[in-house]
């Protein structure tokens, strides 16, 4: 089995819930985020649009970060998850350089000033550091909440369905834009999504074969766009123009 994730860009509403959930789940140091949101604007013939891409480690099947690691600290599990053994990492940052997606972060002292810089650690912080002892001077990244997956499998739970066996970002996503499951199972939710909605991997040209796929009306073709009736107020960012978006938000406004 190979774990993977599908991110439905027509549903993502840029709430940063996944970013926050990941930070809390892993007690991430103050200036580290494993999940990031990229936003960019496009202007196609006067039609302005904003698109956001939630990004995290792609757990590539041909991971350059694993290949370049000089100590074997970065390695790939049988289920495809790329993990870092912090005790082996020497902090050379070759993996940070080699990652085409820039989803690895070197945990330097300035990125870990404590949750309340200048104050003693809270009990929450102390507990967090015991649970997730992120080591300064090493590299960190998203691990698809591997510990939750392992726990779930050991306890007979279904990964991607049961909350205790599903990554925190997927559990938290209120727009249900994230789907997690087994890429090797052709009948799994994500395999079907990838086929039906023409899932796209980032930077396919590099041959890294990421386990994170994106589906979007614009990427997969116009046919794949979510019907307007299915959109909530949160989804209007993906309407085709700023003007249309403004009309949705302020239907009675004279400025429209």
């Amino acid at each position: 089995m190979k774990w993977g994730m599908v991110i439905d860009l027509t549903k993502c509403m840029r709430c940063h819930g996944c970013v926050a959930a990941c930070r809390v789940e892993h007690f991430l140091p103050l200036r580290i985020t494993w999940v990031k949101l990229i936003a960019y604007e496009t202007d196609e013939g006067g039609v302005l649009d904003v698109t956001t891409f939630p990004v995290r480690c792609n757990q590539c099947k041909e991971a350059p970060c694993v290949d370049v690691c000089p100590t074997g600290a970065s390695k790939q599990r049988a289920d495809g998850i790329v993990e870092i053994e912090a005790d082996k990492c020497i902090g050379c940052r070759y993996c940070v350089i080699a990652c085409p997606y820039q989803n690895r972060t070197f945990l330097s002292k300035d990125k870990d000033p404590g949750y309340f810089p200048g104050y003693p650690q809270t009990r929450f912080e102390i507990k967090g550091k015991k649970l997730y002892p992120h080591q300064r001077g090493t590299t960190t990244k998203c691990n698809f909440c591997a510990e939750k997956i392992d726990y779930g499998l050991a306890n007979g739970l279904t990964v991607g369905i049961d909350r205790d066996a599903t990554p925190a970002c997927v559990n938290t996503c209120q727009a249900r834009a994230l789907t997690f499951g087994d890429l090797d199972d052709p009948n799994s939710n994500i395999s079907r999504l990838i086929v039906e909605r023409k899932g796209l991997q980032l930077q396919q040209i590099l041959g890294t074969d990421p386990s994170v796929y994106y589906v979007d009306g614009k990427i997969g073709g116009k046919d794949n766009k979510a019907p307007e009736s299915a959109m909530t107020g949160s989804h209007i960012q993906h309407l085709s123009s700023v003007e249309a978006r403004a009309k949705k938000v302020f239907p009675g406004s004279k400025k429209n």
Partner: peptide
């Protein structure tokens, strides 16, 4: 970042050595 672990990168013909 962890200089005193430098020795971990030296042993030849390990799995890491094949690609790094």
């Amino acid at each position: 970042g962890r200089p005193w672990r430098f020795w971990r990168a030296i042993p030849p013909f390990t799995n890491a050595w094949k690609t790094s």
